[in-house]
């Protein structure tokens, strides 16, 4: 049974002034997004700013409600159960934001930040709170010396560890990590990722890992799934290595080739697909075709007139990936070249 399932999620926002005699302008942030996380699953959601990935994170974590669609936690529809039950279910999905500076109350010590949810949700008996706090701290690689510290006395990396420990106080089944390491310096990122990985391995926690960084998505979801989003829709969804090595959607291929490689030589063979534009489509317009068609070098008439459904296509390793492109089968997108031995 899926610990978290999102089906046909739509999310609209009203933009601008509300006109009196006609309906307000609607911005379609998410369009028909369906996703399921089983226990221990890792799904990385990648896309550019404005693609809806943060809106998806907020909806998955229950911070924001979808305009339509169903959210099920442990198989139970949040709208069909009582409010008390819905609250209890929601507790099993926790969110970690990008900015650990803003996520912690500056007037609470680490001990207070971690003990409050334990007491409020009666996770442990009162006498065991301190033990549990210590256990959580050790889990994220901090120790007793950090207990009495305030957030301003901690570095960014340490703060993000406290945020992770706090998310874990209520033993969630799913952690939604919205750009959780993007604000952390690269030299310290991996320690945060490995803490998240260890929680996954030991507790079976599932992750919805939201990032703009394709390389990071590949690393964290190496045994999981990548979902590529564009203009509020999932464009490609499949096993991480299959999507990275042999993207089937032109957008994924363009995204992949745009990632700079630290190896100067690898960059010279780049830009195999011409990029027509870097502009995002207007999300307040009704969709008439594929959202990517205006930027897609392979677009044909059908792409402008018919919204492509997300459908299974044979991926690079033969296993199916889901792709929302009319021409997925016929296009020959650049695939990962056979591996070259580096000296």
């Amino acid at each position: 049974m899926a610990v978290l399932s999102l089906s046909h999620i739509h999310k609209d926002f009203t933009v601008g002034l509300r006109p009196i005699f006609k309906p307000p302008r609607r911005l379609h942030a998410l369009r028909d997004v369906t996703m399921e996380l089983e226990r221990g699953d890792i799904v990385a959601v990648v896309g550019e700013s404005g693609c809806g990935k943060s809106t998806l994170a907020r909806i998955a974590a229950g911070v924001s409600d979808p305009s339509s669609g169903t959210i099920r936690i442990q198989g139970m529809d949040l709208h069909a159960v009582s409010r008390a039950k819905a609250r209890e279910l929601r507790r099993s999905v926790q969110i970690v934001h990008q900015d650990p500076y803003a996520a912690l109350n500056p007037t609470m010590t680490v001990y207070q930040a971690l003990s409050a949810p334990l007491l409020i949700h009666r996770m442990v008996a009162k006498g065991q709170v301190r033990d549990r706090v210590m256990e959580l701290l050790r889990m994220v690689g901090l120790n007793e010396s950090h207990l009495a510290k305030y957030p301003n006395e901690l570095s960014g990396g340490q703060r993000q560890r406290v945020v992770l420990a706090r998310a874990f106080t209520v033993k969630p089944d799913v952690i939604v990590a919205d750009e959780a390491v993007s604000a952390i310096d690269v030299s310290m990122r991996q320690t945060i990722l490995s803490v998240m990985q260890r929680i996954h391995d030991e507790e079976g926690t599932a992750y919805l890992f939201i990032t703009h960084d394709l390389g990071l998505a590949r690393y964290f979801a190496q045994s999981g799934i990548i979902a590529v989003m564009y203009a509020g829709r999932v464009m490609e969804y499949g096993d991480t290595e299959a999507v990275i090595k042999g993207p089937r959607h032109p957008y994924t291929a363009i995204l992949r080739q745009a990632v700079p490689d630290p190896d100067p030589e690898l960059n010279q063979t780049q830009d195999l697909i011409p990029v027509r534009s870097t502009e995002l489509p207007d999300l307040t317009q009704e969709e008439t075709g594929c959202a990517f068609s205006a930027r897609c070098p392979f677009a044909v008439d059908r792409c402008m007139s018919e919204v492509p459904a997300l459908r299974p296509v044979a991926g690079a390793d033969g296993r199916p990936v889901l792709v929302a492109c009319h021409r997925a089968e016929e296009l020959e997108l650049p695939q990962e070249e056979p591996e070259v031995e580096l000296a």
């Binding site: 570095s155 990396g157 690269v186 030299s187 310290m188 990122r189 991996q190 320690t191 990722l193 490995s194 960084d213 394709l214 390389g215 990071l216 590949r218 690393y219 190496q222 290595e241 990275i244 992949r256 990632v259 490689d261 630290p262 190896d263 690898l266 990962e336 591996e339 070259v340």
Partner: peptide, 23 residues
Amino acid sequence: KGLIQAIPNIRGPLRDIRAMDGE
């Protein structure tokens, strides 16, 4: 060296990334 090893790669086989100790 550490900085280069901390970058997750897209091309080629997935390399493990490493963190540097401390701050």
